[in-house]
């Protein structure tokens, strides 16, 4: 006979999270899919089943433009973040010594303030009267127009927002990496470049891919950064979705856009997960076995 205490523990630790996920993740997702097949007319939901919203998304170039803009930005931001994260994470792991933990915790400092607050401060930094252009104007130089209300400004903001996530992921991966392998490779005559390309990079690829995805997925759906910094030509897909659910009241179209984004994100996750070996992500510690 099963121990009642064990049964209760199992319920608590398995059923509660499962119910939470069903209530707040699965059901809203189902609602979103249903809504995407209905229509909105003059701010009212018309419960008639049709694929009109998906046809609109497929035929109206505007939404495609938003999506492509978001996609390119997400790829660019993620690649840049990975490229910047590697040296930072590598430095902390190799030279952090006993301050490794503190240095890695410092990466979380930006998260102590809200996203909107961080974006507004960045707006003040990059804007026409901000720190960068203010200094340039003071020394008699022309302001940098490309960082004022542009896709470049959004790029900088997104890197700023998600870089800590990527650094942390790569750091955790490198933390579990056995650096004796690099010494062995060097002893066998490999130069530093070869050691990196043939030992360090491939054995930390899983962690890097996880970091890339942790940056790519939220960047693809970003709505706040382009809203504050993107300027008139910086509207991204996520911002357009927010607009459908906000001022324009075209919820059904917004729901269809959300479903498309969800499916695309799932497909990307699926493709990238093929290259991920969880034992080498750095999260399990199994990479040392």
């Amino acid at each position: 006979m099963a121990d009642p205490d064990n049964r209760w523990n199992r319920r608590l630790f398995l059923h509660v999270p499962a119910i939470f996920l069903v209530l707040f993740f699965v059901l809203p997702l189902i609602a979103l899919v249903i809504l995407s097949f209905w229509q909105t007319e003059n701010y009212k939901i018309v419960r008639e089943w049709s694929a009109t919203n998906y046809v609109t998304l497929a035929t109206e170039p505007a939404y495609f433009v938003f999506f492509v803009r978001s996609l390119f930005l997400a790829i660019g931001v993620s690649i840049f973040s990975v490229a910047v994260s590697w040296p930072i994470a590598f430095f902390i792991v190799r030279h952090g010594g006993r301050y490794k933990l503190i240095l890695s915790l410092l990466l979380a400092v930006p998260f102590l303030s809200g996203e909107v607050l961080r974006l507004i401060s960045l707006q003040g930094m990059l804007g026409p009267t901000g720190l960068v252009n203010g200094v340039l104007l003071k020394i008699g130089s022309a302001p940098l127009r490309f960082i004022m209300y542009s896709n470049w400004a959004t790029f900088i903001a997104l890197v700023y927002l998600y870089l800590p996530m990527v650094v942390t992921t790569v750091y955790l991966s490198l933390l579990n990496f056995d650096f004796r392998l690099t010494s062995a490779a060097s002893s066998c005559g490999a130069n530093r470049f070869q050691v990196f390309c043939e030992i360090v990079w491939p054995l930390n690829l899983s962690g890097t891919i996880v970091g890339f995805l942790l940056c790519f997925i939220p960047t693809l759906s970003a709505s706040l950064a382009p809203r504050f910094l993107g300027g008139p030509s910086g509207v991204l897909y996520g911002m357009s979705i927010a607009q459908q659910f906000g001022e324009s009241g075209t919820w059904a179209l917004g729901a269809a856009m959300g479903v498309v984004l969800f499916l695309f994100s799932m497909a990307v996750l699926g493709v990238f997960s093929l290259g991920i070996d969880l034992r080498r992500t750095g999260f399990t510690g199994m990479g040392r076995l």
């Binding site: 170039p61 505007a62 324009s248």
Partner: peptide, 12 residues
């Protein structure tokens, strides 16, 4: 609102 939203999206 639907037509206006389309116009606005095209502008954006």
């Amino acid at each position: 609102p639907e037509k206006w939203e389309r116009v606005w999206s095209n502008v954006q």
